[in-house]
């Protein structure tokens, strides 16, 4: 970097990046998503994907699932900063590799082509619980649920089978077994 000419210090060593899934329970009120997302953008944290919906209409609680990457120190900060937000009730965090947690994304694929192409496309999705949501002579809309990188691969592979449009969600997560997030 050469001789620093700034009033600020030179950046220190960077640690290793991990991918984490962070689950946040918040009051479902105006601006709450902006608060959470603003915290990430304002402090330079990364958001790989985000999924949010109300899960308890009675208590007005929404569950936000955020996939993020960062050094262990940054992940720790993300959690602590989230916990300080007034509408945040609870924050759970786990590593992408964590075997005790399932996480899934959903994708909708629109494929256009003749029957054989459409059937090939459907077959290619077999591993990911494909559901045909809409069907015409020329097209299928196929829903699958899978991991992010699996959907990435599918998106690539279906190109030659008439894929013309993709819509996908962020990841949602759930613990395995009878346990729930603490």
């Amino acid at each position: 970097m050469g001789k620093s000419r700034s009033a600020y210090s030179i950046p220190g060593k960077q640690g290793k990046f991990d991918t984490h899934i962070i689950v946040v329970w918040v009051d479902n009120e105006a601006g709450v998503l902006a608060r959470v997302v603003g915290l990430f953008s304002g402090r330079g944290y990364n958001i790989e994907s985000l999924a949010v919906a109300e899960v308890d209409p009675k208590l007005n609680i929404s569950r936000i699932t955020i996939v993020t990457t960062g050094t262990p120190q940054v992940i720790e900060q993300i959690k602590l900063q989230l916990k300080k937000l007034v509408p945040v009730h609870k924050v759970a965090d786990f590593k992408r590799e964590d075997k005790k947690v399932i996480f899934k994304e959903m994708a909708l694929f629109k494929v256009v082509g003749n029957n054989s192409k459409k059937e090939k496309a459907l077959k290619a999705c077999k591993k990911y619980n494909p559901v045909i949501l809409d069907k015409t002579n020329k097209s299928y809309v196929i829903q699958i649920t899978a991991l992010r990188r699996e959907i990435d691969v599918m998106t690539k592979n279906l190109k030659k089978l008439g894929l013309i449009s993709v819509s996908r969600t962020g990841a949602v997560a759930m613990t395995r077994g009878s346990e729930i997030f603490k």
Binding site: Q73, E76, Q77, L80, Q81, K83, K84
Partner: peptide, 8 residues
């Protein structure tokens, strides 16, 4: 008093 100040 602020846990997020620690290890930041």
């Amino acid at each position: 008093i602020d846990p997020s100040s620690i290890n930041k």
